[in-house]
Design a protein around this nucleic acid. Structure first.
Length: 231
DNA sequence: GACCAGGCACATC
DNA sequence: GATGTGCATGGT
């Protein structure tokens, strides 16, 4: 039997498409995004900025319990009360302001503030509009596009960059747009594929690809600088 | 106690 | 344009 990390797994090539196949085999379909509504996706996308999802879940549960998980519902809260409800997600003052900005944007752009009205617009238009909202950067905008509005954009996050740099499929110093372009060029434009791929990247990153290398059992069993150096 | 987690805006150079 | 810093909780 082969040792973990002893080489490239049979059938799993070191390509963007090959890594996807390996991840899918290792983890199975992830069925993302974990949310009940497109608006909840958008709220989660803001709350999860630089934050563990378990903490986001607590914050969203608080918003649900308070019965205010709508654009108008969040705006009807005082900024202090909103911050209090999302406290478990960290950066609560910053994120309260960001959520309010997002809600104001939605109520200005969509009937009833229903984010689903953005879906029929061209991807680049929606993306640029989202990026003008204070607190919505490229990753957050793309997460909303993909997981709330079903647009085929690849979401690049810290895990994506770290994992694919270690696999030598991305060089250092690339911008968000550079990395995204690599994936778009290498993969078919497929919303379901991008959805699953990003979810699988997070599944790998969470447990197997930390900033400080300590992975001794990569599920992909590919050559990687962290191989054989667990904590 | 240190590290880490599905970023972003702003100040400074 | 590139780099550094503040924002903050909760799990390991």
């Amino acid at each position: 039997m082969a040792e973990p990390n002893s080489g490239v797994r049979p059938g799993v090539g070191l390509s963007f498409a090959g890594i996807y196949e390996g991840l899918l085999e290792a983890f199975g379909p992830q069925h993302w995004w974990p949310a009940d509504t497109p608006f909840e996706v958008a709220v989660g996308a803001v709350l999860t900025q630089n934050t563990a999802w378990t903490n986001v879940e607590r914050a969203i549960a608080n918003l649900k319990e308070a019965g205010c998980l709508t654009p108008q519902g969040l705006l009807d809260l005082s900024p202090e009360r909103l911050a209090e409800l999302i406290r478990p997600a960290g950066y609560f003052n910053v994120k309260a302001a960001r959520l309010r900005a997002l809600c104001e944007f939605l109520l200005g752009e969509c009937p009833e503030g229903d984010i689903r009205h953005l879906a029929p617009r061209p991807t680049t238009s929606v993306r640029n509009e989202l990026l003008r909202v204070k607190g919505v950067g490229e990753e957050t905008a793309d997460s909303i596009l993909l997981y709330a509005l079903d647009h085929p954009v690849f979401v690049v996050d810290a895990y994506t960059v770290r994992i694919f740099q270690r696999l030598d499929l991305l060089e250092t110093g690339l911008s968000y747009g550079d990395v995204q372009a690599r994936f778009h060029a290498a993969l078919p434009t497929d919303r379901a594929l991008f959805n699953e791929y990003h979810a699988l990247v997070v599944a790998l990153g969470k447990d197997h690809c930390k900033p400080r290398p300590r992975c001794g059992a990569c599920p992909l069993r590919v050559d990687c600088p962290t191989a054989g150096s667990p904590d």
